[in-house]
Design a protein around this nucleic acid. Structure first.
Lengths: 175, 175
DNA sequence: TGTGAATAATTGTACTATACAACTATTGAT
DNA sequence: ATCAATAGTTGTATAGTACAATTATTCACA
């Protein structure tokens, strides 16, 4: 049925097929575990996951407005309104009017918020450090750059709906 | 203030610190993008994300019961009840009584469910294949094994609450 | 063989997370 | 001056989820 050339190609395909499967399973587990970790961490500290993400983003952004935060977290602005409502109420952030544009609000961390932010950053960084330490030093560069290229593809491809008829292959050629 | 030895150590620390940061950021992006991808894919096909996960798990498990599904998806059994309710209603799965144990239910895919499952598997596998193809062939082994060890640590460490006082370092020694 | 603990699933309730549409207030372009 | 664009809020709806209480069944064992 198949020529020898096809046959060889199929062996190669099988290998990459298995690698793709491994990647799929591992990223699935990774995502799930990170989300559980995130949830645990947030719930330990009296804030919800979404609140925690918002605090961290506000802490990182030099100028945060609800709209910028919405774009960064990829949330609807109404969602951000309610999220920041709760954070203001719980004393993590301040919401002040922008004197230059009275439509705009400026979000910033309170002292409590900053403490939370810094503790979270330290804790997360320490945790990821403990993860990277498990990878042999010589492999780290390859690992990180490979992961980086996968993330890059995912970020680029995020626009399109990934439906069953268009399996995305070859859509991310442009640099 | 610091001796030379400490100084050298700090240079090394800085490097690993940066690597840890890269890992943190990339896994964060990875998780977010995968979840967006998942959501798109599910919503394209008229099922919700949770439904999609359930269909895929039922398709993979040879014997599925609500309890097993709950354990696999790490959901509460009540959540699984409602999830399977909707899937039965939409014709993706069958829910039959186990003749051996009348407390138990057996979940299986209908023809429609199986078609969905297979299309999803093919599509996902194709997509991950397109991802793995972007990584130089010689790096794939290192990449996958590194990713594997990180996932392994995450899976092992999932029991404990990751709070701000116990940064998890050195908790995952046992093989 | 009867009883109580364990197990499987469901229902009631509540909450987080989220989006979309409609709205108000403000700014900016012409 | 007016009208489109922008920033944010509110009303409403839904997915996703958990926990506690409940029902039905099985199982261990005395």
């Amino acid at each position: 049925m198949y020529s020898t050339i096809i046959h060889i190609k199929e062996v190669v395909d099988l290998k990459i097929h298995e690698q793709a499967w491994e990647l799929r399973e591992m990223t699935r587990k990774l995502a799930r575990n990170l989300s559980l970790l995130d949830r645990d961490r947030a719930s330990c500290c009296g804030v919800t996951l979404a609140q925690c993400h918002a605090i961290v983003e506000i802490g990182r952004l030099s100028e945060a407005t609800p709209s910028i935060l919405a774009a960064t977290l990829r949330l609807d602005r109404s969602t951000v309104t309610r999220l920041t409502d709760s954070l203001v109420e719980q004393g993590y952030i301040l919401r002040a009017q922008d004197p230059g544009d009275r439509r705009s609000l400026t979000l910033s961390l309170t002292e409590k918020g900053r403490r939370f932010f810094e503790a979270t950053e330290d804790s997360m960084n320490g945790f990821f450090r403990s993860l990277i330490e498990r990878i042999p030093e010589n492999d780290r560069k390859i690992f990180l750059s490979s992961l980086g290229s996968i993330v890059e593809i995912l970020e680029k491809g995020k626009c399109g709906c990934f439906d069953l008829d268009t399996p995305l292959t070859g859509q991310t050629e442009g640099g």
